[in-house]
Nucleic acid binder design. Structure first.
Length: 570
RNA sequence: CAGGGUGUAGCGCAGCUUGGUAGCGCACGUGCCUUGGGCGCACGAGGUCGUGAGUUCGAAUCUCACCACCCUGACCA
């Protein structure tokens, strides 16, 4: 491809709307243009990247035995009413009416449609297992779209759905999809991690997320370097401390702590570490009465875990300041279990503490030397906090580290959640009607592009992994308009490289070198060959990899061979 | 949805306090010049100042309403 016949639209300055680096670079490089909030046009350069990602996803899905189909984006309400999600899904579901005032939605996902396809088609165990997928635009009316295509409302997703006669078959396909996803992200050249995940709203049991590792990622991942344990922090178990609770030594004393409202205030005021404090959080209970949660001062409450407690109302709701004031006679910031009559749940770490500091249920007062059992009744104990770096790994093989990631894939065992409500039945070998087992497997294709940039960039722009770069090689002539030698050499090189199967972008604009270099670096082309009169005097050209700081001088006659070896090698 | 912020040329911004008919940089067009890191000079094109209503002789500027976009939203115990 020649720049003169392509469409580059690079910007020197990033539009003000872009906050995160991948969004800024995608706009500056002209990969995408925003149409409206959370809705983007994929410009020609960006589309090349997207197509390369799609191609890899498609190849690996096909290789894993999945079969591609394409379902409609617009879906009738009847199917969603049947599954119960027309009511459940809420405002994220974009609802439409046709000219007859019939209800439709723009599909945010396709369990209903694929289930309808399969129940019409599949009658026998002989037709199972079946794994169907598509690569298609979804629309989810996010509360707050952000970060460009990373959290867009309209986005491209690869979604697959598998159907099985039994759980063993589901397990097998689930494993195949796990391996398939690992191959996809490996081929894309991304640093990623598969983590055990919460099943969230979709439900079902087994679930793994695939995260591209990046410091700016929205999700925190706990992993164990000494084993293969990895889990989303929402799920990662904080195991009980190995040491039992020490005996109480200190006496309970009321301390005047004027103006202290936060754990940080408290530590500064008493000059003690946060590990010796306990914070009390009040949430609404299932029975309508508040529940007091106790978490060590330096720990964070985990809302996903908390939401699974039977005593706690779903979704987890923090009690209002008014309710707290009425019940405790103190403001949030001075609360504690002493004298509290309602339900108390302590985190496992708190249950193993002695002589700690806690709010006294009176503004500006705390207790020091507080002890469970002695000063207030033994509370219920549960895992309700986020793990932190250094916590013991739940598999008992070392300690956890925390890193951040961007979720780009998610696989679920749905089991029979949809198949039973949607009547996905088949006849088994004995002629008995049974409900199918189901799995579903998603990849955010557009999000992968943003995540890749988030993970791979520098101050000059994007550094695309080779597999997803819009072009493999930038061919930059210097002074092409002036030097016939440069012009002829670069044209011949362009022909030879293209013939050798290399995806070349020839910058034939006859711009000044700085312009060409800056553009090719910004758009992230992983390799560059420069042809100038200076080098040609010695029969040489210049090669430089995007991520590397220095250029190499290569003999002109070896150029094609060298470039090929670099592209196929390392 | 709640809180905060911003809407002026394709992009980044100034002008608004104190009302008088819009400007800068980049990008774009033409010409000259230049060719190993966003070069220089000259000329030029491009704006219903988000929309509507109001105040005023006069509104980008003041008032009101609306719209769009961006940021933050358990971590507070």
């Amino acid at each position: 491809m020649r720049v003169s016949r392509f469409y580059l639209s690079t910007l020197k300055e990033a539009p003000a709307e872009a906050e995160v680096v991948s969004h800024q670079l995608m706009l500056r490089a002209g990969l995408v243009k925003r149409l409206t909030s959370g809705v983007y046009t994929w410009m020609p350069l960006g589309l090349r990247v997207l197509r390369k990602v799609e191609a890899i996803v498609r190849e690996e899905m096909n290789a894993s035995g999945a079969i591609e189909l394409l379902m409609p984006a617009v879906q009738p309400a009847e199917l969603w009413q049947e599954s119960g999600r027309w009511e459940q899904y809420g405002p994220e579901l974009l609802r439409l009416k046709d000219r007859h005032q019939r209800d439709f939605c723009f599909g945010p996902t396709h369990e209903e449609v694929v289930s309808d396809v399969v129940r019409r088609e599949v009658k026998s165990y002989r037709q199972l297992p079946l794994n169907l997928y598509q690569i298609q635009a979804k629309f989810r009316d996010e509360i707050r779209p952000r970060f460009g295509v990373m959290r867009a409302r309209e986005f491209i997703m690869k979604d697959a759905y598998s159907f099985h006669a039994d759980k063993a078959s589901l397990d097998e396909t689930y494993r195949e999809m796990y391996d398939c996803y690992s191959r996809i992200f490996t081929r894309l050249g991304l640093k990623f991690r598969a983590v055990a995940a919460d099943t969230g709203a979709i439900g079902g049991t087994g679930s793994h997320e695939f995260h591209v590792l990046a410091d700016s990622g929205e999700d925190a991942i706990a992993y164990c370097p000494a084993s293969d344990y990895a889990a989303n922090i929402e799920l990662a178990e904080a195991v009980a401390p190995a040491a039992p609770r020490p005996a109480a030594r200190a006496a309970l004393e009321r301390a005047h702590t004027p103006g202290v409202r936060t754990i940080a205030d408290l530590c500064a005021f008493l000059k003690i570490p946060a590990q010796r404090t306990v914070k009390a959080v009040v949430v609404d209970g299932t029975d309508g009465r508040p529940v007091l949660l106790m978490v060590r001062g330096d720990h964070e409450l985990n809302l996903v875990k908390t939401g699974k407690l039977e005593q706690v109302k779903k979704p987890v709701t923090f009690s209002s300041t008014e309710a707290i004031r009425a019940l405790f006679g103190a403001e949030p910031g001075s609360l504690g279990p002493l004298g509290f009559k309602g339900k108390v749940i302590a985190d496992r770490a708190v249950a193993a503490m002695a002589d700690f500091i806690i709010g006294a249920n009176q503004n500006d007062y705390h207790y020091t030397g507080a002890n469970v059992g002695r000063d207030f009744p033994e509370p219920a104990v549960a895992d309700i906090r986020n793990v932190v770096a250094g916590d013991a790994s739940p598999d008992g093989k070392g300690v956890l580290e925390i890193c951040r990631g961007i979720e780009v894939g998610h696989i679920f065992q749905l089991r029979t959640q949809y198949s039973s409500t949607m009547n996905l039945n088949f006849l088994d070998e004995s002629g008995t009607s049974r409900v199918m087992e189901m799995g579903c497997y998603g990849i955010g294709v557009t999000r992968i592009v943003a995540a890749a940039i988030e993970q791979n960039h520098d101050e000059r722009g994007i550094i695309f992994p080779r597999a997803m770069a819009p072009f493999e090689l930038a061919l930059v002539p210097i002074g092409m308009g002036k030097s016939a030698q440069v012009r002829e050499t670069v044209e011949r090189l362009y022909r030879d490289l293209t013939t050798a199967g290399i995806d070349v972008l020839l910058d034939d604009r006859d711009e000044r070198p700085g312009v060409a270099f800056a553009d090719m670096e910004l758009i992230g082309i992983p390799q560059r060959v420069v042809v100038g009169e200076r080098g040609l005097k010695n029969g040489s050209i210049e090669y430089q990899a995007r991520g590397s700081l220095k250029a190499e001088t290569i003999a002109l006659q070896d150029a094609v061979k060298y470039v090929k070896s670099r592209i196929c090698g390392d």
